[in-house]
Design a protein around this nucleic acid. Structure first.
Lengths: 413, 413
DNA sequence: ATTATTTTTTTTGAATTTCAAATTAAATCA
DNA sequence: TGATTTAATTTGAAATTCAAAAAAAATAAT
């Protein structure tokens, strides 16, 4: 009875109290399996504090509908113990295909993952214009997705969910874009526009939130319930995970770390305000300063500037030095406010070494409220280029998972 | 079968999955009643999405054990509608007496509330020393509580829970104090010390968190699930409520707004670091600056400084002006990170007008990420002197409520 | 080779919770 | 006085979960 198909978003209305409770067991079990990768029933029971009897019942149903499957024990057990051998369970990859799409200035990146999170195919579509009207962008996105599907040898209709990541201010709950650097218009009901092109559920969010989701599902935030992810692309982004959920704020636009003020009446930011962190650590900010303090060597791009600093250029060093200190100050503020267990500095390119350095992290630790308890762990995670798109897919996987389980509860009559 | 008595903290161990669920219905109902003040069963049903049948069952049990009671309809109904009249329910004040204690530098404030939140008695015990050893402080606290009880004409043993608020870094989960300005020692297991003096459950937390609790239960945060409270006493504090719960961070010391950095290598703070917000807006910071820029008039205390500013003194004005701008900047950062629906500027004295002014709030609004959605509402709430102690009591009320319901679930065999 | 032991998983029957539907209660309206 | 309306309660059924018992599947011991 394994299913592979489109999920009906229409059924996902408000649930009654009892429905929520009924759903929670299955959701908890599938989340545990996903977090663990593969895990035996008995361990699910201890992890979730659900009785073995119930775990058996729930997993049986999930296997029945094809969302999970038993792992065939390949290797003859290393540590041979007595007793009935445990049978591990895992997410069934073939259950769904999920697309993740990241729109950046020069390119639309697409990745299609299976339900387990394995890469099926990826694709990039170069963009002529960084900023365009909504309809045009929707078309480009669907083009990119279509090309990716052809490359993978399957039809777009076999995709169960699409996650889309945008730089900007997004209300994920409503699939609504207040503002994006990729769009001409403000206040766009992006979800509605994109829904015209495809019947499958669509999930739109700020790109930094999506990276946080990716870290949570596939990355260094696995099995961590509360952490903060900082990303740098063109701007500086932050994603906050509290109690296993992305914290989004009341209007859906929290975690605007990049526009946190680090200097009263400070440097001018892209956003038109002064003193934003981004105006000190963003690549454009560094290049701008390099031009101001131009010493005749004519630093043209960031690579050159980095090289100059490495080779001892005092001007260049000073620029990176200030950026690093401002970044440390911003990070310290986040720690003072959130007291997270873990901070993940997540990057797709290594060119931000100057911000992700031990020195900066050490400085941050010094600027944090000092108590006799271990300071937050800081991990630097360099993903490949597909980081952003994978984040979008991670978000969609989680949402599709929820929808699938909700549908299951409803279809049981 | 109405109970009035001490709750056994010992029974409150880890609960199984099913216990948690069993508990949730009652907890939800009692929380709804408390939030509403008084509310009919049918409205509880719609608010909680629990069926009327279940609400009847749950409320019957809660009435039976004396935690809630029916409100006798005094006035003949204003809006005379057809149909069976609804009978409102409310928390039964006599169910428990709860003490809230706030330790500040010069005084220990005690308030005893009934279970509904009504003030039964309050009391202040002046302190000679602001900072003392833990045993001494425990003794002073119990003295203050004892005196308050005598004043109220009841015995200390009739109190069901004690909340204690301290300035400093506290891990509420463990009743553990990393550091407090009222204590000589660092890293004190305050809960264990205080428990030697009384058998009833004790709940210790950072004072700003407690004010947030008070706003949530009794103040302007009533019926608001997510908001931020800023408090100013000697230092600057913040309490964050996310999804109806105080956000405490991984080590229990989040929301350290006062030590958020607003200036790289800035003014020296009490905490030994530089550039903390507190070092610009705290009373000591203002006085310090006034001395530096002493113009011969010899500003000696904050009142004089405020008066000087009002009467047009340029120096004094400039001091308050900078404090206000720094405060606005800090607030803007909080908004950019949390995107709260509501910010409550909570104060016990009116002397912080210069920070809670329209001008500062307007400035904050300008420094926030601009989107076409309403900015967070900002409310100024001036409580009386008992604000801090009431906050401590609010926390204890909520915890005792949880314990009482948990006990109920257990005692049902 | 057979039995004992250990551990995981499944089955079973009971307890609990919740709800929909029917019923009762308590008011006003006609 | 009876009809109507709304709130609260009762009742019986459905769903969920679990403890305890049983079964399954391995190794260890004899």
């Amino acid at each position: 009875m394994a299913s592979q198909g489109v999920i009906d978003l229409g059924k996902a209305g408000r649930l009654s109290h009892s429905d929520e409770q009924r759903e929670s067991g299955k959701q908890q079990v599938i989340d545990t399996i996903r977090a663990a990768g593969s895990i035996a029933r008995i361990d699910i029971s201890t992890a979730t504090r659900v009785s073995p009897a119930t775990v058996t019942a729930i997993t049986a149903e999930l296997i029945d509908v094809g969302l999970i499957e038993e792992v065939v024990p390949e290797t003859p057990r290393q540590v041979a113990k007595r007793g009935r051998p445990r049978v591990a369970l895992k997410i069934r990859g073939e259950a769904h295909k999920i697309a993740g799409i990241k729109v950046s200035h020069r390119v639309i990146s697409v990745v299609v993952l299976d339900f387990e999170g394995n890469n099926i195919v990826d694709h990039e579509l170069p963009l002529q214009l960084g900023r365009m009207p909504i309809d045009k962008l929707c078309k480009m996105i669907m083009d990119a997705l279509g090309q990716a599907c052809s490359k993978g040898g399957f039809d777009v209709s076999s995709i169960s969910g699409i996650g889309v990541g945008l730089a900007g201010l997004v209300d994920a709950k409503r699939n609504f874009v207040y503002w994006s650097s990729s769009l001409d218009e403000r206040n766009v009901d992006f979800g509605a526009h994109l829904a015209r092109h495809t019947p499958c559920p669509i999930f739109i969010d700020n790109d930094a939130n999506l990276v946080a989701k990716a870290e949570h599902l596939f990355g260094k935030g696995r099995n961590v319930s509360d952490f903060v992810v900082i990303t740098i692309e063109h701007g500086v982004g932050m994603g906050i995970v509290i109690d296993n959920q992305i914290y989004r704020g009341s209007r859906g636009c929290g975690a605007e770390f990049g526009h946190t003020k680090v200097q009263l009446e400070g440097a001018l930011c892209q956003c038109g305000q002064r003193g934003c962190l981004e105006a000190y650590v963003g690549d454009y900010a560094l290049l701008r300063e390099a031009n101001i303090t131009n010493d005749g060597t004519g630093h043209r791009d960031l690579g050159q500037l980095v090289a100059a600093a490495r080779s001892g250029d005092q001007m260049a060093r000073s620029i990176f030095d200030r950026a690093g200190r401002m970044f440390a100050m911003g990070l310290a503020n986040v720690v003072n406010i959130f007291d997270p267990k873990l901070i993940i500095l997540s990057g797709a390119r290594l060119s931000f070494d100057y911000l992700y350095s031990d020195q900066v992290i050490e400085e941050m630790r010094r600027w944090v409220v000092q108590i006799d308890a271990p300071p937050p762990e800081v991990l630097v995670h360099n993903w490949g280029d597909l980081m952003w798109a994978k984040g979008a897919a991670a978000y969609a996987i989680e949402e599709v998972s929820t929808l699938a389980i909700r549908e299951l509860a409803c279809s049981e009559n």
